[in-house]
C-alpha cells in the first residue's frame, strides 16, 4: 500500500513539472529574459526566489526552465526509441547475419560511453539546443538497441510467433502486428528508464556549456551559471539541482515499478 502512495506522489510531481512547463506564462507574468532589477537579490528582497546574476527574476526562469529541461530529453528519447526499436526489430525479424552484424556493431559502440559519443557529436555539429537533442538521442541508441533486442528475443521465443509464420504472415506483419504490440509494455518501461538517462545526459551537456544560448532558461545551464555565486546565492544552484534530481528520481521510480503493477 505504501508503494502505491509513493507512486501517486511521483506521478503528481511529474504532472506538476509538465503543467509548470505548459502554463508558465500563467504562473508568472514576468519575462524570464529581461533584467528587472539589481543582480543577486535574495528571495527576501525580491520574492519569491530573488534575482539571478544578471538581475532576471529567478522564479520566472525556473518556471520557464521546465519547458526545455523536459522537452530536450523527451525529444531525444523519442529519437532513441524510434531508431533503436526499428533497428532491433529489424535485427530480430531478419535474423541471421543481419542480426549478428547489428549485435556486433552495438557491442562495439557500447564500448564508447554514451556521454562521450554525445560530446563528440556536439563538437562536430556545433553547440545549440537541436544539437543536444540529436547528440543525446543518438548517444543512447546502442544501449537501447541491446536491451530492446533482448525483449523482442524473449517474445520471439514464445511459440506464437512461429505459429504466425506458419499461418503465412509476412515478416513485416509479424513485426508490426505481433512482436511490437506484445513488447509494448516492456518497451514502455525501458523507454521510461531511458528517459531518466537522457535527462541526466542533457543536464551534463548543458552543464558543460554546450547548449549554445545561456539566456534560454534550462536547469542544467542554470546549475552551471549559479555555481559562480555559490557562497553568496546558493539558491541559484540548489533550486535547479533539486528540481533535476527529483525529476530524475521520480522517472526512475515510475519506470522501474511500471512492470510490477
Amino acid at each position: 500500500m505504501r508503494i502505491h502512495w509513493l507512486k501517486i506522489l511521483c506521478v503528481l510531481w511529474l504532472a506538476t513539472m509538465v503543467l509548470m512547463a505548459i502554463i508558465a506564462p500563467i504562473i508568472t507574468s514576468v519575462d524570464p529574459y529581461k533584467p528587472i532589477g539589481s543582480p543577486l537579490q535574495s528571495p527576501q528582497d525580491h520574492p519569491p526566489l530573488g534575482t539571478d546574476a544578471l538581475g532576471r527574476d529567478f522564479f520566472a526562469r525556473v518556471t520557464y526552465g521546465a519547458r526545455l529541461s523536459l522537452s530536450i530529453p523527451l525529444l531525444a528519447t523519442l529519437l532513441t526509441v524510434f531508431v533503436g526499436t526499428s533497428v532491433s526489430l529489424t535485427a530480430i525479424v531478419v535474423g541471421g547475419l543481419a542480426d549478428r552484424f547489428i549485435l556486433a556493431l552495438t557491442n562495439a559502440a557500447l564500448a564508447i560511453p554514451g556521454l562521450l559519443l554525445a560530446m563528440l557529436l556536439v563538437a562536430g555539429l556545433g553547440p545549440g539546443i537541436p544539437t543536444v537533442v540529436i547528440a543525446v538521442g543518438l548517444g543512447g541508441i546502442p544501449g537501447f538497441v541491446r536491451l530492446s533486442r533482448s525483449i523482442f528475443l524473449g517474445i520471439k521465443e514464445m511459440g506464437y510467433i512461429d505459429a504466425a509464420y506458419a499461418l503465412g504472415a509476412s515478416r513485416t506483419r509479424v513485426a508490426l502486428a505481433h512482436l511490437l504490440p506484445n513488447a509494448a509494455p516492456q518497451l514502455f518501461s525501458l523507454a521510461t528508464t531511458h528517459f531518466a538517462w537522457a535527462f541526466m545526459g542533457t543536464t551534463t551537456l548543458t552543464f558543460l556549456g554546450l547548449s549554445g544560448d545561456p539566456s534560454v532558461p534550462e536547469w542544467g545551464a542554470m546549475l552551471n551559471s549559479g555555481r559562480m555565486h555559490l557562497v553568496q546565492a546558493p539558491w541559484l544552484t540548489i533550486i535547479p539541482g533539486i528540481l533535476i534530481s527529483l525529476t530524475i528520481l521520480t522517472i526512475h521510480y515510475l519506470g522501474e515499478n511500471y512492470a510490477d503493477r
Partner: peptide, 21 residues
C-alpha cells in the same frame, strides 16, 4: 540508493564544495 542514481554528479559535487567550504 535511489537518490544516488538520480542526483547529477555536478550537483553533488557543488553541494559537497559548499558544505566543506
Amino acid at each position: 540508493a535511489a537518490l544516488a542514481t538520480s542526483i547529477p554528479v555536478a550537483f553533488t559535487g557543488i553541494l559537497s564544495l559548499l558544505i566543506v567550504g
